[in-house]
Simulated assay, not measured.
Amino acid sequence: MADAATTLPGTPLKSALEDGILRLTLNMPERMNALSEAMMASLSSALSRAGEDDAVRVVVIDAAPGKVFCAGHDLKELTAHRSDADRGRAYFTDIMGRCSALMQQIVSHPKPIIAAVAGVATAAGCQLVASCDLAIATDRATFCTPGVNIGLFCSTPMVALSRNASRKQAMEMLLTGESIDASTAKDFGLINRIVPSEYLDTVVTKYAAVIASKSPLTLKIGKEAFYAQAEMSLEDAYNYCANVMVENMLARDAEEGIGAFLEKRAPEWEGR
């Protein structure tokens, strides 16, 4: 994956790689960057390639300039299958499965993934933000899980949301369907930082560059361990993470990093 900006052929996604930072830009503003079949396939394919590309150190998911970051599932696409013989059951099952797989792909991805949110993130769009490792938003961004307003509880977005916000905060969003502003989203734990709109790219790039300067092996080990231990009991988490630390200590990058620290020099990462 060369250092270049491209629109992936036949897809609604833009891709640009510079200095180890891969930006994947949702680029269907006329469809509110909905997670259509094409959008999900594009994101999944791009993330798969990024996971295998040593030139990619950090991934940023953002959206083309506009009022909407991501509006969730493409309701027109879903509704078109109401006329299927099974009233859409097979299609709905497939789409929900694809979306769930995409969110899990983000969590299990070997590279850190940052959401850069400059607009509305609603339903599965809010799920996308919650699934990323970090999220930085503008002071104009809003977030909601409004399925309850149209008779469709945001059950799959709930999985990611409830792993960011507290139970009562998550239920507040899910039961009311009301939007929350960036400040409330930060209080809930859904995003990390709020910045003025004009500084979003600068701040996100700064964060990404700091992360990209670390050992890629260490980041991979740490991200995997973080999500694994979060689902364990306290005792199991400590036992698991102690073993992770041992294996990490034996890695060449840990040897190099500790040596560089003691010798007061910059480390030279090998990714092993």
Rank of each mutant, 00 (worst) to 15 (best):
F153D: 12
C154A: 15
T156I: 14
A160K: 01
A160G: 01
L161W: 04
S162R: 08
N164Y: 07
A165Q: 09
S166N: 11
R167F: 11
R167P: 01
K168R: 12
Q169R: 13
Q169L: 11
Q169M: 14
M171P: 09
M171D: 08
L175K: 14
G177D: 07
G177M: 06
D181P: 06
T184Y: 06
T184P: 04
A185R: 01
K186M: 15
K186C: 04
D187I: 10
G189V: 06
L190S: 04
L190Q: 06
N192H: 13
V195W: 04
E198M: 05
L200T: 04
L200W: 05
D201T: 10
V204Q: 08
V204K: 04
T205Q: 06
K206V: 02
K206P: 00
A208Y: 06
A208C: 05
A209T: 12
A209F: 00
A209H: 02
A209W: 00
I211Y: 00
A212C: 12
S215F: 02
S215G: 09
L217A: 00
T218A: 12
L219E: 12
K220L: 07
K220W: 09
I221L: 10
G222M: 14
K223R: 13
E224G: 07
E224K: 12
A225Y: 06
A225E: 08
A225V: 01
A225G: 08
F226L: 07
A228P: 00
A228W: 10
Q229S: 05
